[in-house]
Design a protein around this nucleic acid. Sequence first.
DNA 1: GCAAAAGTGTTTAAAATACACCCATGA
DNA 2: TCATGGGTGTATTTTAAACACTTTTGC
Lengths: 183, 183
Amino acid sequence: MGGFVNASENIKEAAKRVVGEFTGIDDIYLEQVGAYGDINRDVERVISIAYYALVDINKFDTSLAEKYDARWARINQMPELIFDHNQMVKDTITQLQRRASVKPIGFNLLCDQFTLPTLQSLYESIYQETIDKRNFRKKLLTMEILEKLDEKDKSNSKRGAFYYQFNKEKYDQLIEQGMHFSL
Amino acid sequence: MGGFVNASENIKEAAKRVVGEFTGIDDIYLEQVGAYGDINRDVERVISIAYYALVDINKFDTSLAEKYDARWARINQMPELIFDHNQMVKDTITQLQRRASVKPIGFNLLCDQFTLPTLQSLYESIYQETIDKRNFRKKLLTMEILEKLDEKDKSNSKRGAFYYQFNKEKYDQLIEQGMHFSL
DNA sequence: GCAAAAGTGTTTAAAATACACCCATGA
DNA sequence: TCATGGGTGTATTTTAAACACTTTTGC
């Protein structure tokens, strides 16, 4: 999705506004990918600044997007885009992968509580490769930034998977102590 | 240094042109840092796109820069800058550190031939920490992307240090095989 | 001969990886 | 009872980190 920057807003505010118009979500996590300004990329000269947003898909209302003719696409099955938009998507994925290995941005994509199998499949989507579940759980749990809850999610299995929640205070504390998060 | 994007050039070309005007170097390695557009960052509304350049300091003519009132500064002793330029410098260093750990960008900062002590002190500057020279050399040499030459650089010691050169073919080949470079 | 930088290996600790079985439960 | 996804531990390999002495040579 895209739009223009108004004179009265900074560029991140503009991006937030556009996302809000398309999705109805007004408090959203955004990170800048970069600026794109090939001279022949549009009829008129346009410089685009690309952002990616991390959205909790459960909270997402798709009807608004459809009004604007916006579509969901899987990254494996991306349609061909106009101008340098293919490059934008490619760069976005690269940056997402790099940042995901340094920051726990995965948690922005999920509800407050989530199961470990869900979190794992999220990371598998980001990195486009499978992860051993024992190693994944070990790594996460030894960081001690997750809190196990008592409830289970039974939507994916009969046994059910325990919910966890991200402990941001603990995380911030570890960062301050110079800990290098990596997944 | 800074300048404006002309209607007839893309944004990277504009950055190259500006660097050329300030330094006399017209073929330069540039990477984009990002776009900055706080609304109160200037008298008129300006959106800046920041780039960093990697320059072989030996080839650099400082007289041109001085004409434009541009100055060299050590990152440890940066003066306070206007608007959001401090943030730009901060982000640049962060990005440089991240990219340096993934790409052998260090080699763009040196002449074709360089000594290992020089390369090491370059990386020490980038990461702002000292590195054990035995571990550094081991890591680099086991990658087999450097070729030892017969000549020595005697400018820094009586004994002299052997020159090496970067083997880009070998490096590209390793990348293609899925090798993950990291320093 | 001595100061100053270049060069060289080994040992230890930590982190990543590979791998296979039992558990709980709804149908 | 059985099919399905959830959960658990250990052994091995790889990688990172710590560490000290010898070499060369211009002065």
